[in-house]
């Protein structure tokens, strides 16, 4: 590359790069820095506070992320297998809709649907399935968050998994069908192993996004412990102005995402370069 071209290309790259570095990369590093500071003193107190106050919240967050991810992947793997073997355009279209519905709206919709006095309970009470004096609350608990995350992420998972399945040539399936493989065997023996790599990337991506979900638990969380980690970070800053602990909690969330994030970053950049 000619030197003048090198300089020109760096100038072109500079503005977008500057914004992301200034407003993401530096704040990212500074949260690590601030997490060790308390009243301008270097200390580990923030982390001991995180351990004392938030260790169950961290487990709670991981639990929700794992359960939601497992549910999303299980449903997507089977549903996409069905859609791949027997095409069903209407269902395929339906499952694209949540892609275009923002997380906040999903949170609100699920709040209206799943609250103790929500629409679901009134439907169920009509058929006499629940007791009106003690209506179950799915929202305001981990189930409500999980249901919302599953509902929203299922669309993405269906899109990615179906894409991976579609890139498996039809003849691979025909060869199996020829020997009498049922739809389930075609999914288990052919589609799933042949698209395992794409599935892993999709899973990594969704796991981080669930771990970091903020608007959904904010909308349908109960306001009482246990909370998801992002809510803790937000409350810590909004109500206590305690940046040290909030950032320590933030660093913990980075570490939780680290394993999958590393895998995700590596595969995506390898694919591109």
């Amino acid at each position: 590359m000619r030197p003048s071209l090198r300089i020109a290309s760096l100038i072109i790259a500079l503005p977008p790069l500057a914004i992301v570095v200034w407003l993401f990369f530096i704040p990212f590093l500074s949260s690590a820095h601030l997490s060790f500071l308390r009243e301008d003193q270097w200390t580990l107190r923030n982390y001991s506070l995180v351990w004392r106050l938030y260790r169950y919240d961290i487990l709670y967050t991981l639990w929700i992320a794992f359960v939601s991810l497992a549910a999303v992947l299980l449903i997507a793997v089977l549903l996409c297998g069905y859609l791949r073997v027997h095409t069903n355009k209407p269902v395929e279209f339906l499952f694209k809709i949540p892609l275009f519905i923002p997380f906040v709206v999903v949170g609100h919709a699920m709040r209206v649907l799943l609250a103790p006095k929500g629409t679901l309970n009134s439907v169920l009470s009509q058929v006499g399935l629940i007791n009106l004096n003690d209506p179950p609350s799915i929202a305001f608990g981990w189930m409500g968050i999980a249901v919302s995350l599953i509902w929203k992420n299922l669309a993405l998972a269906v899109l990615l998994v179906l894409g991976a399945y579609r890139s498996v040539d039809e003849t691979y399936l025909e060869a199996a069908r020829n020997f009498g493989a049922s739809a389930f065997r075609q999914i288990r023996d052919i589609l799933l192993p042949m698209s395992a790599a794409s599935l892993a990337v999709a899973g990594a991506f969704m796991f981080t996004s669930m771990l970091a979900s903020f608007s959904v638990p904010l909308m349908i969380g109960s306001g009482e412990p246990p909370q998801m980690v992002m809510i803790d970070v937000y409350y810590r800053i909004n109500y206590q102005g305690d940046y040290g602990t909030a950032n320590a909690l933030g660093v913990v969330s980075y570490l939780l995402a680290m394993g999958v994030a590393g895998y995700y970053l590596r595969t995506i950049t390898q694919k591109e370069t």
Binding site: A175, A176, R177, N178
Partner: peptide
């Protein structure tokens, strides 16, 4: 009859050998 009940076996142009097996 569905393919598997006909007792035919097919050889494909692209071989269609499953790469993960």
């Amino acid at each position: 009859l569905p393919p598997q009940r006909r007792g035919t076996a097919m050889v494909f142009q692209n071989y269609a050998l499953w790469p993960h097996m």
